[in-house]
């Protein structure tokens, strides 16, 4: 498993932000809200969640839109949206460096940015990407080159409750039912480390207060 690293409150002017990296992939997420909302997006019973993904180079295209909608649907499940009606929660994600794990890095960065902003959530969430090599081995947090050579790639987003329930699953390539189950199980195991990492990061943020 590649190394996870995170820097909270990376941006000084947003309500919450996090720079997150897994191996050589890094993304910067910034959360603003609950705040002002355009009239067209205003919902009477819940807050509007908006995700904006910008690639490291060039303009956002179809791939970025697809990522945005996946991240939005995941995040919406975790945030307690009904607590702030007629507001918007804006999540901007900037891809910094890409080595195949753009989606899982963005989801994790978004989660930590939400934690940094102190937005009320049902649960935390963490994404894990894995791929299956032609020989049938499962690689957790693969590199771009490893994904290119693999037969299938799968990303799972788990919630932070003890059972690590699946919030989102995304597969690409040829994946049999048995392989899928193996992937899911191994990713579930790996997610525990990520949640432990989250806890360590947040504990560091509140270190000052624990001591005093």
């Amino acid at each position: 498993m590649a190394q996870h690293a995170c820097d909270l409150t990376f941006l000084s002017r947003s309500d919450g932000s996090a720079l997150y990296s897994i191996g050589l992939t890094a993304a910067l997420a910034s959360v603003n809200g609950p705040g002002d909302v355009k009239v067209s997006n205003r919902l009477y019973n819940r807050s509007h969640v908006e995700v904006c993904y910008s690639p490291s180079t060039g303009h956002p295209m179809i791939r970025e839109r697809a990522l945005e909608s996946i991240i939005m649907r995941t995040v919406e499940k975790a945030i307690l949206v009904h607590l702030h009606p007629r507001t918007a929660i804006n999540i901007s994600i900037q891809e910094m460096q890409s080595d195949g794990l753009a989606l899982s890095v963005s989801v994790n960065a978004a989660c930590l940015a939400l934690l940094d902003a102190g937005i009320q959530m049902k649960t935390t969430f963490a994404a894990i990407t894995c791929c299956i090599t032609p020989f049938g081995t499962i690689l957790i947090d693969p590199t771009e080159a490893e994904i290119q050579e693999s037969v299938a790639e799968a990303t799972f987003v788990f919630d932070g409750s003890g059972e690590a329930k699946v919030l989102t699953a995304l597969q690409d390539g040829h994946l049999s039912y048995e392989d899928f189950k193996r992937c899911l199980q191994q990713c579930q195991e790996a997610s525990k480390d990520v949640f432990a990492f989250y806890r360590g990061t947040i504990e560091k943020k509140y270190q000052n207060e624990i001591e005093s």
Binding site: Q120, M121, K122, T123, D159
Partner: peptide
């Protein structure tokens, strides 16, 4: 009394 650090869902 500060008990501990919690995350959402704990």
């Amino acid at each position: 009394e500060a008990v501990r650090v919690v995350l959402p869902g704990d």
